[in-house]
Nucleic acid binder design. Sequence first.
DNA 1: GGTTCACGTTGCATATTACGCAACGACCGT
DNA 2: ACGGTCGTTGCGTAATATGCAACGTGAACC
Lengths: 253, 253
Amino acid sequence: MSQSLDRALVILSELAKDAKTLDQLAEQIDVHKSTVLRLLRTLESHHFVRREGARYYRLGSALFDLASQALEDRDVRRSSQPALAELNARTGHTIHLATYEDGEVVYVDKYEGRHSVRMYSRVGKRAPVHCTAVGKVLVAAMAPARRVEIAESLDYVARTGNTITNPADFLAELDKVAKHGYAVDNAEHEDFIHCVAAPIRGEDGVVLAAASMSIPKILLDFDGLLALVPELVAAADNASVHSGWTGNTERGQ
Amino acid sequence: MSQSLDRALVILSELAKDAKTLDQLAEQIDVHKSTVLRLLRTLESHHFVRREGARYYRLGSALFDLASQALEDRDVRRSSQPALAELNARTGHTIHLATYEDGEVVYVDKYEGRHSVRMYSRVGKRAPVHCTAVGKVLVAAMAPARRVEIAESLDYVARTGNTITNPADFLAELDKVAKHGYAVDNAEHEDFIHCVAAPIRGEDGVVLAAASMSIPKILLDFDGLLALVPELVAAADNASVHSGWTGNTERGQ
DNA sequence: GGTTCACGTTGCATATTACGCAACGACCGT
DNA sequence: ACGGTCGTTGCGTAATATGCAACGTGAACC
């Protein structure tokens, strides 16, 4: 809708990948150097980008200034922190905290695992709902009608051989998730990793977010993964309590 | 330089303070609603803002996506992490990691203290160099000529009764800092808080960043603060080693 | 249940604003 | 000293963002 703003935002995404020169940027987004220069100058004046030496541009400090304010808003993040940090410290596995945002999952927090297998995830990154444990948990928490609506609007990109690729299977999976109170991603997103996830609830039992543990398959087989479910659910419930959840703890099987 | 982009960036800062409605934003930045709406739509399409309900706008996930990428770039942050986290865990005090960026200090990382006295600082926030311990450390590390240049370009806003308010005093302070290898902020920035800071060095001894401990005066008097200097310096040196510093450990007194 | 706000939203005409161009200038390497 | 590679500038043009006024929509109130 606003061309120059749009271009500026594209520039920011480009710079996120790597520091770039004016010419490189101009070529990549296919606009004249002078235009890019003007945009960069405006961005720079607000500290959204900074120059490195004479030619390179990098993302600036305003980004993490705004980001840390934006994150403080997300109360789940803070209230879940102790429980998740503890789980991470005790198990040494990678923990993600995620929320649902129009058709996708957004990672709101991440606790790096000790066995640092490079995982392509990051706070702020988005991922599909159909092939992630957190995605399943979040959608499973919605009203049946909404589930169907979402299930039918998805893209079902097959990330691995195990990825669910049609609405019917996805809805069936969601039923299971809703019944059991946790979700599994059996290498449906990335080939060498499987995950379990559980919901974090706030007042009135509304699901605010989902917490997951991601473990390389080489490190733990599927049965071993399932054995971790109780620990994860316990941590998620603990986080729920700190997030305003007052529902009964003896959840019906 | 680019009006619409400029306005959009202002909108983002406004939203950082609090979620706002279209009308509120239009009034605050003094442009027509329809204009704001178009900007918001573009921002929304890139996930820089998100709608909350029908009327409220909030900062979106793209911000922390970019921010975490931007922060990963700043290697000091990662390499200093273990040493600073340890110091924070052991002492329970608030630790800041900061870098210098055109005339100001930028907080790159923060480890919250246990005695959670509300401090008005945040990752990404900027602060003046003349009244912060980290600022003194960073400027003191520069060549004498550059120090003078900076000292003369500063604003010297008096934040408290102790704030240094002229170039001569600031330069004298910098000499002391350079000589001792650490800096003190004796309630020069905020009335009830004093700090100590030390440099973190990389290859060739270049100062990459400064680490500081901030402590409420009620909790510890000035002598007590000074007594913490060795611990801080040790942690900073440790961080230096992990940041590529190979200089001699027996620094001349 | 109807009336009234308080918003968000749309289409359109205007000129302001951002655009691309081409020439300039700074810097670096040879 | 020369060529090349970038960043930078001024300018005329027209595309683009703007403000306006009218329209929807939802909630609140009587």
